[in-house]
Design a binder for these strands. Structure first.
Length: 430
RNA sequence: GGAGAGGUGGCCGAGUCGGCCGAAGGCAGCCGCCUGCUAAGCGGUUACAGGGUCAAAAGCUCUGUCCAGGGUUCGAAUCCCUGCCUCUCCGCCA
């Protein structure tokens, strides 16, 4: 969330910055509530000061054996008034917090202007899409023809938008995860973590999933009406909340964390979109990258994170392009972000396979992670960054489509061979 | 799941029958002094958040914070309730 002081000090600048992104209209209301809040606090605190003094006097009087019942009665009324004011303050606080939670992050000045994804800017392209001497098929056809992708049985035991992978395709999923984790931990300086896949509401709030995206989450309740836990929509949630409430030493930054986990998303509101195959499922796995950085290094860390995600595609020899999101399309929490779009010959399009963002101090403030500057001084909020490195399900899609052969088999990319000993191509063999 | 114990400042730890407790004492840290160096010793000092004042900062002042949220009371670290977490024993379990 934004710093209320920023809104208080330069409301017009904030509103202007949010022009493309929305939320500018909330600024005025927050300001009004903020003024009300301070007025109430002043009144309540003045009364508390009065009561504290009186209570001390009552104590002394009693020790002298004097009667203080008149003063006590007076303070009882003051106490009631304080209680009412405190309740008002709480109500205004909650209202401000709810409003503030709806205000998106302010885009970094370098972010291109624009309203929608149509205004995004292609930054660079890598690789040349392969020329096929036959018509490349979409991944679901390739997988199902081999008998390795089974949408029908998944739908039977769960529901639509779930998948079963059989045999070597299941192995491929496992190998990809291993390959990506090894790359990021051995070559990019990330620390691997194995994290909870169910988290509490607090964590979802701190990572911005709640309240805004509740309709995208799967919610669980323990059988005997225990607490509510949510299935993570990405391991970014768990990774970036690990240090919530902590103050880190500057010299331990940046922290680079990676985790492989399943991700669960309702995909509400995507009706007919990407209904076939595993491109958009309720469950998919992903290797996630998270960084906690100082404000000074946050944007450099974003650039390197994008390169780190790109390395995965380069090693797999999958053509892609990097797109910078414009102010209107950059995510709610994001100050600046890039998408990696992989070439899918079956669709004849570049499609998103990774998204890397810097949430900046907006993310650090919300999750409450600070760092103590080396130079001394007050702790400041870290920049939080996250990116996919990569979405494993979509990587499978890309491999099935880019590496498909005319006979229906799929060649295994060279970089994965060490992880799939003896396997050179996917066939009908299970 | 059953039984019990407990959650106090960066750490350890004291808080009597509720008031003078933001909280003794120790350690650690910081600043001085002293001292061939180091150690020891001496003096001082060290939380966070939010209001008010101020152009702003500093300063001053007020409020809140002894796990969290309620309650009792003129007044709660101290009493009551709920939740969360930790520890011990038993049971169950991959």
């Amino acid at each position: 969330m934004l710093d209320i002081k920023l809104i208080r000090d330069q409301p017009d600048a904030v509103a202007t910055a949010l022009a493309d992104k929305g939320g500018a209209d909330l600024i005025h209301e927050i300001l009004a509530r903020d003024g009300e809040r301070r007025r109430l606090i002043k009144e309540a605190e003045d009364l508390k000061a009065l009561r504290n003094k009186a209570s001390e006097a009552i104590g002394q009087a009693k020790r002298r054996g004097e009667d203080a019942s008149a003063e006590q009665a007076r303070m009882r009324e003051v106490g009631d008034r304080i209680k009412a004011l405190d309740a008002d303050v709480k109500a205004v606080d909650d209202a401000i917090e709810a409003l503030l939670a709806q205000v998106p992050n302010v885009p970094h000045p370098s972010v291109p202007r624009g309203k929608s994804d149509a205004d995004n800017v292609e930054v660079r392209k890598w690789g040349t899409p392969r020329q096929f001497d036959f018509t490349p098929r979409p991944h679901e056809d390739v997988g199902e023809a081999l008998g390795l992708l089974d949408m029908e049985r998944a739908t039977k035991i769960a529901k639509t938008r779930f998948a079963v992978l059989w045999g070597d395709l299941a192995r491929l999923e496992r190998a990809l995860a291993q390959f990506m984790l090894d790359l990021h931990t051995r070559e990019h300086g990330y620390t691997e973590a194995w994290i909870p896949h169910l988290v509490n509401a607090e964590t979802m709030l701190r990572t911005g999933q709640l309240p805004k995206f509740e309709e995208q989450l799967f919610k669980t309740v323990e059988a005997d009406e225990g607490r509510t836990l949510y299935l993570i929509p990405t391991s970014e949630v768990s990774l970036s909340a690990l240090h919530s409430g902590e103050v880190l030493l500057e010299r331990t930054l940046p922290r680079r964390y990676t985790a492989y986990s399943p991700c669960y998303r309702r995909e509400a509101g995507t009706y007919g979109k990407d209904m076939k195959g595993i491109f958009r499922n309720h469950q998919f796995s992903k290797v996630e990258l998270v960084k906690l950085a100082t404000p000074a290094s946050g944007y450099d860390e974003l650039e390197s994170m994008v390169r780190e995600a790109e390395t995965v595609l380069q090693r797999l020899e999958l053509p892609y392009r990097v797109v910078e999101r414009c102010a209107g399309d950059v995510g709610f929490s994001s100050a600046k972000g890039y998408d990696l779009e992989v070439w899918l010959p079956g669709q004849g399009k570049y499609r998103e396979i990774s998204s890397c963002s810097n949430y900046a101090d907006f993310g650090g403030r919300r999750v409450d992670i600070r760092y103590k500057p080396e130079s001394g001084g007050r702790p400041e909020f870290v920049h939080t960054l996250n990116g996919s490195g990569l979405a494993v399900g979509r990587t499978i899609v890309a491999i099935l489509e880019n590496y498909q052969n005319v006979d229906g088999t799929v060649t295994i990319p060279t970089a994965l061979r060490p992880y799939l000993p003896g396997l050179e191509r996917l066939t009908t063999r299970r």
